[in-house]
Amino acid sequence: MATTDNTLLIIERAHRGAVETQFADTLFFVRELHRQSGGIHVVLRGLAASYAVDTPYEAALRIAGRTLDTLPDPRRLLRQLLDDGATVFVEEADLSALGARARERLLPGVRRVAGADLVSRWSDYARVWFF
């Protein structure tokens, strides 16, 4: 039986269409869910772990005469989500898959966790959704 009314959102897939998605990416909707529910916990695993790693990435592309500077910026959204009070985990193994230095660039506030440890806590949540 769940011990809280919190929802655990597990995000595995990432980078799903920079040009066509722009602001409306997964984390945008996660923020909205947190605003509505007040109790979102996020696990970043698979390639979504990259969202928790700081990077000198400029979210912009030139197409014809336009600089499209509204590409998704998941790190900015993650910082906002953390400021909103959401809890964000990243799975250790997936962080390592991004290279040995990735963990040195983890966004402040993101918690590293071993996958098995988090699964053990699924029953604490009212809802566990892959998102």
Binding site: H15, R16, G17, A18, V19, E20, T21, L61, R62, I63, A64
Partner: peptide
Amino acid sequence: APHQNDLVTSALRLAQ
């Protein structure tokens, strides 16, 4: 399909 991966982004980048 759009929104599944960065195929569309790559296509536009490569075309450009």
